[in-house]
Nucleic acid binder design. Structure first.
Lengths: 144, 144
DNA sequence: CTTGATCCTGTAGTCACTACAGGATGCATG
DNA sequence: CATGCATCCTGTAGTGACTACAGGATCAAG
């Protein structure tokens, strides 16, 4: 088990960063490959060493992903929030576009839930002669 | 424009089936490749000819996809609804498992919507000194 | 006979990861 | 100092559900 300390310096190995951030090791390397994360410095033997900046960036990405932003959107947000944190208007544009998408998905999903719930409810006994779920899915005879 | 009729027989070309069902041509071929749809008969020159059975099956798939079932689930449903349409209980199991997933996704999405909406609302003027969206995403200093 | 629409196969790209294979280090213990 | 296990490395391929070509064949109308 070897004790996960080693934070004597503020440098983290990829495994520690992974545990800390809740982002899979493979995913961290993937982020580096696609340039979501800068390539960190390495030890003499080639192991990645992450400092507090990378830690923060990864946390930002993680949180944004949780909120459903795509990596492309996050890239834009990172650029905007980078060196000069000027353009709140641009950030607002990205975030509200995303919000609109979330809302539309939400309403679709709500409709879907209603249909499914209603359908499933109609055969809770499991003894119906014809299966209403299949009938719903099989619909299309009425317009045919 | 060449008139989309040709329903003299009840056979459809892949293009007609696509238009009729709202499923992309490429997707129809993809379904055939992964065996969601049976390989249809062909004309002498090798073009696919679809009859009413395929039309129905594709409509079933389409509708199920709209309701968020995975292709794997749909495959199971098709098997269940196939030759002997006996096991409504099995269908019920698949559908209600799916319903549970939908509900959990729905509640996640609702939470997400609330956070996003609140965050975006806080900078509608676009003139805030610091950007609340970036701040929310950048959170993590409090626990650090 | 030419033109343009439609069709064919096969391959590769998308998104956001995830899962290996096959090997090199790091480090604590005997 | 050797052993052994955890961790790390690179590189490639797989996932789901498509989508997008390239490069060619066929069809039907004018």
């Amino acid at each position: 088990m070897r004790a996960i300390t080693s934070s004597r310096a503020e440098n983290l190995s990829i495994g520690e960063l992974s545990k800390y951030s809740g982002v899979n090791i493979e995913t961290i390397r993937y982020y580096e490959r696609i340039k979501m994360l800068p390539a960190p410095p390495r030890t003499a033997s080639g192991r990645r060493l992450y400092g507090p900046a990378e830690k923060r960036t990864l946390a930002f990405i993680r949180r944004s992903r949780d909120l459903g932003f795509t990596l492309e959107e996050i890239r834009a947000l990172l650029d905007l929030g980078g060196p000069e944190r000027a353009s709140c208007a641009d950030v607002h544009k990205i975030a509200s576009a995303h919000l609109a998408k979330v809302r539309s998905k939400l309403s679709d999903l709500a409709k879907l839930e209603a249909i499914l719930a209603e359908t499933v409810a109609r055969c809770t006994d499991g003894a119906a002669p014809d299966c209403p779920v299949l009938d719903i899915l099989d619909a299309g005879r009425q317009g045919d």
